[in-house]
Design a protein around this nucleic acid. Sequence first.
RNA 1: GCCCUCAUCGUCUAGAGGUUUAGGACAGGAGAUUCUCAAUCUUCAAACCGGGGUUCGAUUCCCCGUGGGGGCGCCA
Length: 438
Amino acid sequence: MPQVRVRFAPSPTGFFHIGSARTALFNWLYARHTGGVFVLRIEDTDKERNTEEFLNVIYDSLTWLGLNWDEGPKAGGGFGPYRQSERAPIYREYLAKLQAAGRTYEKDGAVYFKISGEPQVIDDAIRGRVERTEEKDFVICRSDGNPVFHFVNVVDDITMQITHVIRGEDHLSNTSKHTELFKAFGAPLPVYAHIPLILKQNGPGKMSKRDQGALVEEYQRRGFLPEALVNFLCLLGWSPKDDSEKMPIAEIIRRFDLPGINQTNARFDEKKLAHMNMTYLLEQPADRFVALARDYFQGQNVTAATAADPAYFRAVMLLSQPKIKGVEELPAYTVYFFIEDFPVDARVRDKVMAKGDPQARLRELAAALTTADFSSDTALEETIKATAAKNGLGFGDYQAVARLAVSGTNVGPGITGMFRVLGRERVLRRIERFLGAA
RNA sequence: GCCCUCAUCGUCUAGAGGUUUAGGACAGGAGAUUCUCAAUCUUCAAACCGGGGUUCGAUUCCCCGUGGGGGCGCCA
């Protein structure tokens, strides 16, 4: 069997859609699974301004997702050029073939392709036999001389020797146009695999660029891990057929295959993506997590955090890593580590201050903390426990009020870790201030 | 309107005629654990679109209907 050659052929519109990402992913996975070639081809037959900038959106998103291409812009390859805007001579040559064969005619300046009208049958790798008869001749060259999508798409697939066309189901009805052209050129048909579409989360229809969460760059900006998004995306329309969900990319590559792809459209579920992302976040090595967090804080312009001592920033992030669901929670989750005038949750304050004599407990604790060893969680724990035990109380009777005084909330990492990272000076100063204010 | 396509819990899916009281995951409910909050663990609730066939037997095969999605551009 000849080497598999698949392609991903986006058009530079300035957006990289989540559906495009999955199409790219499935192509890439199939290439990697079979040891084939993943081609990136840019369909820029519409001359638009800022094309370079729009191209970068594609390159950046693919690169971020880890979908490296073997042939294409920047990568080179023996079947270039890989931008349709640079392939005009090839299109002219192929147009001439059709003209010579008498398969074209002009009307109003546009070139039409004369269809055969024969039923077009494909054996789709996902859907099986699909038959459709094209009924009308169609334009392959606009009156301004530029060739049209259906034409260039087929010419490129022929000249780039694409063996498998893995694309969205929205192209299924177009396929009869394409097979008409393949046959007119006397070229063998590629294997088609029409993958189901991704439907928008709420409301009817497929996901479009304007829908919430539709753009890949959004996840990048929000600090998602690309491998989590990839893992989530591959499960939208494909299944390993057992209960596996979280899988390293090597395993996905090994198990991925065309027959494993479903035929049903999948609804995008951001909650499940968030969960997948969390499971990946939890296991990230310290350096990567801290770097991810730093990028996010920088992107959000949280200067109090980014200007903080790097070692301190790192300690705060590592303390928070096991507690959060996503990097975007970090700024709010860690505010009090970086500023002194942190917000105080009134409801929590009222609740905590309502029972017993919290001020007295806090005062005792502060006294004990003056000499405590702040370098060790266990030492701090012992200090709190001992203070509580003196009064026949428990750890919990002390941590709530201490937490309130030091962080202004009841949400956060363990109190001992929080104390350790904040350090004696901050902790005592905040308790003093709190007691003074109360 | 015409054409193509799909149909299992709210969502993503497993299931390829009997092994199914239809399994897993997310979300939701309850509980356990814990210094708070998460995480984690246990647990509960939750689905085979309808009607005909085929068959000893259909979630699984066929047909029709219904519903969803897509396509019918000198967009890609």
